[in-house]
């Protein structure tokens, strides 16, 4: 299926969905309500209701300090909420640790790439494969029990590496890759987990422009294979180009959501961006200092 066709199908799915914050989706894979988190009296995230449609690329945008990464951390079990609940594929995720969220099929990447630097590229991939016998302490001591499985995973890993054009680097230490290659590796690695949804935290940050197109291609390819993608990004052009749906966060709240064209013309979004861009340098700083005063 071509990318356009699948984009069109994704758009179809969103047909008739009102562009208002918290609007229900026809077939949500992720549902969150009342999710709140504050740091030292400062509310970082306060999302009343949010649903993510299956099989779409949804972008999460917002000015600095809007709480995008915090929301990511909360949803993926890397931080604890003060209140709220959310479910993935109908299963409640509240209180689950990061690893259990990942096992449910919701895998994330990080804003600052977390390549396992002193492992080879191939080991980075193999590490991510789920359900390995050889990863159990006693299983590990009896190689015949895991050799075959290892060989199968190796094949799968090589396929993915070829797709992300990293196969030539398979025996290099991940730490020797360039920033963009690390982003690719991290994306490839998350696919080893066999997820139904990937959450990409600023996949384009710090990547050289030549690689951006390739990364975008990979993201749309994921959707074309039926995966759901939620990603955080700053670059408006990028977002408008590939997203099926956009959620705008400001001061921890969802202030708007809708198709790219809805967002482009949304007054609140423009206000939010212009309003904070005005004092952006101090944005995070104010928060930290305020929190410090609290402490």
């Amino acid at each position: 299926m071509s990318s356009e066709a699948s984009a069109a199908r994704a758009a179809d799915r969103m047909a008739g969905v009102e562009p208002v914050p918290g609007v229900p989706k026809p077939d949500p894979i992720l549902k969150a309500s009342g999710v709140r988190r504050s740091f030292g009296g400062l509310t970082a995230v306060d999302v009343e209701h949010l649903e993510v449609q299956r099989g779409t690329i949804t972008a999460l945008i917002g000015p600095n300090g809007a709480g995008k990464s915090t929301l990511f951390n909360l949803l993926t079990g890397f931080d604890r909420v003060d209140a709220g609940e959310w479910s993935f594929e109908g299963r409640r995720l509240n209180g689950l640790g990061g690893h259990r969220v990942a096992r449910q099929g919701m895998v994330r990447t990080f804003q600052l790439t977390k390549a396992l630097t002193r492992l080879t590229v191939l080991d980075n991939m193999l590490l991510a494969a789920p359900g390995q016998v050889g990863e159990r302490f006693f299983g590990a001591l009896y190689p015949p029990a895991w050799r075959r499985q290892e060989a199968v995973q190796r094949e799968r890993a090589m396929d993915l590496l070829r797709r992300f054009k990293l196969d030539a680097k398979k025996d290099d230490l991940a730490g020797s890759l360039s920033g963009g290659q690390r982003k690719l590796l991290e994306m490839a690695r998350s696919l080893m987990v066999d997820p139904s949804m990937v959450m990409l935290d600023e996949p384009m940050a710090g990547v050289n422009p030549a690689l951006v197109q390739s990364l975008l291609g990979h993201i749309t390819a994921l959707r074309d294979e039926g995966m759901t993608v939620l990603f955080v990004e700053h670059d408006m052009d990028v977002i408008m180009g590939i997203s099926d749906w956009i959620v705008v966060l400001a001061q921890g709240r969802v202030i708007a959501e809708g198709r790219p064209e809805d967002i482009r013309s949304d007054e609140r979004v423009i206000d939010a961006y212009l309003g904070t861009r005005h004092d952006e340098p101090g944005g995070d700083g104010e928060a930290a200092r305020g929190a410090e005063e609290e402490a």
């Binding site: 740091f39 030292g40 915090t70 951390n73 993926t76 890397f78 931080d79 990061g98 929190a291």
Partner: peptide, 9 residues
């Protein structure tokens, strides 16, 4: 006692 809860991740 006086520490702030850490952000993780």
């Amino acid at each position: 006692i006086l520490g702030r809860r850490e952000r993780v991740g």
